[in-house]
Amino acid sequence: MTATLPAASGGFRFVPGVYQYSAGVAAEPGFRIERVRFADPLSMAEGFARIAAALEAAGRPKAAFCACELRSPAPFTEDGFAAFNREYGAVLTEWGIFLDGKNPVARSNVCPEIAPPATPSFHAFSYTVPDANAAPSFVVAGSGESAEGKSSYREHTVALGDLSPAGMLKKGQYVLGEMERRMQALGFAWKDTTGVQVYTVHDLYPFLGSEIVKRGAARHGLTWQFCRPPVRDLEYEMDCRGVAIERVLPAA
């Protein structure tokens, strides 16, 4: 099981991942994670500014920013995704977020198939708040059906190009297993989730009961967002969380 690392100044710990995000975060004792969703997607620049303002208003440092959910216009090429991640990472670097070269912030980034944003945008973010009596809370980053941190996504994609029921089952099983691995590293399981999201434009009903519901991943229902993963040729993504407090931030 992957060991977690502390983000002490932020009040959470994280599962090391790749440059652009950690695999997941959990609040340290004495803290809770809160999730904030924007009423409408905000461009990256505006989103970062609103997040900074929200943290300041809550009396929290930028280091308390522990997770985010992005929306992009369409799946990137591998080179395009790398370029986007460098831009995103540059802001985290400016904020002093990276710890010994590791990114502690968990992230999902998906592409709405219908009515996508014009530019990459923020959908939601999470941050830590001091709370001596808080129940454990966590956010697991999104994962598609490809091993991360390799030479390319395409070369390591499960059932590449196979959109048959059998192919989608293999993709779903891989991603469900990755969710479980990340939760286990943080000390959690499906029974601890308060929200589970799946992102695909393909039919997941053939394995909804046998894989998702049977594992306990839909204990509070399942949010199916009609979106694609952020890199071309990926077809199925999930993320999950166990967060007691969530709210919507209205448009400015």
Rank of each mutant, 00 (worst) to 15 (best):
residue 30 G to S: 05
residue 143 S to G: 08
residue 197 Q to R: 15
residue 133 N to A: 15
residue 109 N to H: 15
residue 219 R to V: 01
residue 1 M to T: 12
residue 116 P to G: 07
residue 173 Q to M: 14
residue 191 K to H: 14
residue 63 A to M: 00
residue 246 E to Q: 14
residue 147 A to V: 14
residue 97 I to D: 04
residue 235 E to G: 00
residue 143 S to N: 12
residue 210 S to C: 08
residue 246 E to W: 01
residue 158 V to A: 01
residue 63 A to T: 13
residue 94 E to R: 10
residue 164 S to L: 04
residue 108 S to W: 04
residue 180 E to K: 12
residue 247 R to Y: 03
residue 120 P to W: 10
residue 50 R to G: 10
residue 252 A to F: 11
residue 195 G to Q: 15
residue 219 R to I: 03
residue 62 K to E: 09
residue 147 A to I: 14
residue 7 A to L: 09
residue 145 E to N: 13
residue 70 L to P: 04
residue 73 P to W: 07
residue 94 E to F: 00
residue 218 A to M: 07
residue 185 A to R: 03
residue 110 V to C: 12
residue 180 E to R: 11
residue 104 P to A: 06
residue 109 N to E: 13
residue 36 V to M: 09
residue 17 G to S: 02
residue 223 T to M: 08
residue 163 L to V: 11
residue 217 A to S: 06
residue 225 Q to A: 11
residue 224 W to I: 09
residue 172 G to N: 02
residue 223 T to A: 09
residue 47 G to I: 11
residue 232 R to W: 02
residue 78 E to M: 01
residue 204 L to E: 01
residue 148 E to Y: 14
residue 149 G to D: 09
residue 192 D to V: 05
residue 151 S to T: 14
residue 21 Y to E: 03
residue 94 E to H: 06
residue 132 A to E: 14
residue 232 R to P: 00
residue 118 A to W: 05
residue 56 E to P: 08
residue 126 S to Q: 11
residue 177 G to A: 04
residue 87 E to N: 11
residue 182 R to G: 00
residue 122 F to M: 06
residue 232 R to M: 12
residue 199 Y to D: 04
residue 28 E to T: 01
residue 74 A to P: 00
residue 113 E to N: 12
residue 186 L to G: 03
residue 52 A to K: 12
residue 133 N to S: 14
residue 31 F to Q: 07
residue 25 V to N: 01
residue 37 R to S: 15
residue 180 E to W: 04
